[in-house]
Simulated scan of single mutants.
Amino acid sequence: MNYDLFNQNIDGSRNWLPKDGIVYYYGHIFTKEEADFFYKKLFDTIQWKNDEAIVFGKKIITKRKVAWYGEKPFEYTYSNTTKHALPWTKELLILKKKIEKETGETYNSCLLNLYHDGEEGMAWHSDGEKDLKKDGAIGSLSFGAERKFAFKHKDSKEKIELFLEHGSLLVMKGTTQTYWLHRLPPTKKIKNPRVNLTFRTIVEE
Rank of each mutant, 00 (worst) to 15 (best):
G121W: 00
G121L: 06
A123Q: 09
A123E: 15
A123C: 07
W124I: 08
W124C: 12
W124Y: 11
W124F: 12
H125V: 03
H125P: 05
H125D: 03
H125Y: 05
S126H: 04
S126L: 01
S126P: 03
D127M: 12
D127G: 09
D127K: 10
G128K: 09
G128R: 08
E129D: 05
K130Q: 13
K130W: 10
D131Y: 05
K133F: 10
K134Y: 10
K134V: 15
D135N: 09
D135F: 05
G136L: 11
G136P: 13
A137L: 06
A137C: 08
A137H: 04
I138A: 02
G139P: 00
G139S: 00
S140F: 00
S140R: 00
L141D: 01
L141G: 01
S142V: 12
S142Y: 07
S142A: 14
S142I: 11
S142C: 14
F143Q: 11
F143A: 10
F143P: 01
F143Y: 11
G144N: 09
G144S: 06
A145N: 07
A145Y: 06
A145V: 07
E146Q: 14
R147M: 09
R147A: 05
R147T: 11
K148V: 10
A150F: 06
A150T: 12
F151M: 02
F151I: 00
F151T: 00
K152W: 11
K152I: 14
K152P: 10
H153V: 14
H153S: 09
K154M: 15
K154Y: 15
D155W: 03
D155E: 05
D155G: 02
D155R: 02
S156H: 11
E158F: 05
K159R: 14
K159L: 08
K159P: 07
K159D: 09
I160H: 03
E161Q: 03
E161L: 05
E161G: 04
L162Q: 06
L164I: 12
L164V: 13
E165F: 13
H166Y: 08
H166I: 10
H166T: 11
G167N: 15
G167D: 12
S168P: 03
S168E: 14
L169A: 07
L170S: 00
L170K: 00
V171F: 07
V171A: 02
V171N: 01
M172Y: 04
M172F: 05
M172P: 01
M172C: 02
K173P: 01
K173A: 03
K173Q: 03
G174N: 13
T175R: 07
T175Q: 14
T176N: 03
T176V: 04
Q177A: 07
Q177P: 07
Q177N: 06
Q177W: 08
Q177R: 06
T178Y: 09
T178G: 06
Y179D: 15
W180E: 04
W180L: 02
L181T: 07
L181N: 11
